[in-house]
């Protein structure tokens, strides 16, 4: 386990934890002070391939099976991914289908009553984030976390919009430029944790407060970073 992840778990779980790291996949339990929660995630900016997707799905299913019949405990997801693995073999196997399987496992956990809390520690990028961390009931970015689909240089190349124009517009618009703050403004991240915060207390509060409704579009409208998502969805839902 990397030192930074060990340090994170020590702060999150002052009452004890046992999280193992095998081939970039984190799995175990932690106690933030009011009982054990499950821990599932990735480290070292993992490129999510079929093997990692299956390891994550297996860990989520194990948590659901373990608590079956009893009180479902929260699952804390640690998101640290550079995105999906880029490989012809992985595409042939149907990597998108593995991600869909993982997403279903996460949804099952929610249905079974597990509260799902995502902590972004490191990077959260695109497809690797969609199938897993982005499905949490509450999503938090730790200090220094990088959240993005694509960096501006690559975006400029593909869209053929000058980099200077993108850089300039990124000062006022949160909709395309990388950054946890931008995702917060759009409601995609519920909270940004400060460096000095009592992590154990913050995590306990998060697990207690997380609701199962998808409130991200409403948050985005309230925070002014995504003004149309909620309104347009409502128009379609309620059209005469």
């Amino acid at each position: 386990m990397r030192d930074d992840k060990s340090a994170l778990f020590a702060r999150l779980f002052p009452a004890g934890h046992d999280v193992t790291c095998e081939a970039q996949v984190l799995q175990g339990w932690g106690d933030a002070g009011d009982g054990r929660v499950h821990v599932v995630g990735t480290t070292d900016h993992a490129a999510i391939d079929t093997r990692i997707a299956l390891d994550l799905a297996r860990a989520v299913l194990a948590a659901v099976a373990q608590d079956g019949g009893g009180a479902p405990r929260p699952i804390v997801f640690i998101a640290d991914t550079q995105g999906q693995a880029l490989s012809r073999r992985e595409e042939l196997l149907g990597l998108n289908g593995y991600f869909a399987h993982l997403a279903r496992c996460v949804h099952l956990a929610r249905q079974q009553g597990h509260r799902l809390v995502t902590l972004i520690d490191g990077e959260a990028v695109s497809g690797g984030f969609l199938a897993f961390g982005l499905l949490g009931d509450a999503i938090v970015a730790l200090p220094g976390a990088e959240v993005r689909v694509m960096d501006l240089r690559a975006m400029a190349r593909i869209t053929r919009i000058p980099l200077e124009r993108l850089t300039e517009l990124a000062h006022t618009s949160p909709v395309f430029a990388p950054g946890a703050e931008n995702y917060w403004r759009m409601g995609g991240i519920h909270a940004l944790w400060a460096p000095q915060e009592d992590r154990g207390a913050a995590l306990r509060a998060l697990c207690a407060e997380a609701g199962t409704e998808d409130q991200r579009a409403r948050l985005g409208a309230e925070r002014g970073g995504r003004r149309l998502a909620l309104a347009i969805a409502r128009q379609v839902r309620d059209a005469a």
């Binding site: 909709v175 409601g187 995609g188």
Partner: peptide, 12 residues
């Protein structure tokens, strides 16, 4: 890509 963050959240 022109609205990548909004698109990612929309797909979620």
């Amino acid at each position: 890509l022109h609205e990548a963050n909004a698109g990612l959240l929309a797909i979620s």
